[in-house]
Amino acid sequence: MEYIVETNQLTKQFGKEKAVDGVEIRIPKGEIYGFLGPNGAGKTTTIRMLLGLMRPSSGSVHLFGKDLKNNRIAILKRVGSLVENPSYYPHLTAYENLEAIRKIVDVPRARMKEVLKLVRLQDAANKKVKGFSLGMKQRLGIAAALLHQPELLILDEPTNGLDPSGIIEMRKLIKQLPEKYGITVVISSHLLSEVDQMATTVGVISKGKMIFQDSIEAMRRIAQASIHLRVNDPKAVHQALLVYGQKADIKENSVAIQTTADEEVASIVQYLVEQGFAIYRVEEEKRSLENIFLEMTKEEQIR
């Protein structure tokens, strides 16, 4: 498969510490790739290396199948980016900020109006960006990133500091990009909830290492619910369930089974009662994606 973004053993070392350690990213065309990890996990460092803002200590970055090292200009012509906080020139207006970029990327003037309209800043176009709210600055940053009609859009924490309505708006805007314009999007965040409604593929990074990379469906499958049985003697129940032919895990004072089908649960409970066990509680535990994400990154931190 051809990947729009592909990194091989990408590593960045600051002194002794590896901020990014052997990361292998694979992003097919047209995906919205949620790049997740707690703060300080190495997201921004990785993104900076994707854009050539920082040199990798080792490993390589390929965008559109070309090595970034040797094809920087040709590649960057096709990439739009917003790294960390929105970047802008405070002494210029929104329109002038875009104009300064337009002179370099060389697109028609009409394109500036288009992108300003897309992020709904057309009414603030002639105001100095200094006085913009954070949300407006973020939107201007996205407009700037879209100015030269990139095929790959890299957004680092674009919802940072936005209010809930701003986040929803941003989500709407980003979600339509692959369908409408065929753009592949990479969006990083430290909160899964911010990307789980738009991401199609997810990569989770923790302590500089990629610990999960798959479709969002695969992540959802991990998050499937389970039934917890609180019983008088978990060990014996566990044994009995194995004899019965049901996989089960012993938790502190309960036994967990993966099935949630009503009929199956009913017959398991009936069986256990017939065996003479006392059942105190039958509870369904739903693990949210957020919990899965937290568990993933927590385990990694303990290790």
Binding site: L51, L53, I73, L76
Partner: peptide, 18 residues
């Protein structure tokens, strides 16, 4: 200065320029 102020460098250098 105006490149340092609000992330101008990273925006400028992520454009197709050497």
């Amino acid at each position: 200065r105006y490149e340092h102020q609000e992330g101008g460098w990273k925006q400028l250098l992520a454009l197709p320029v050497t």
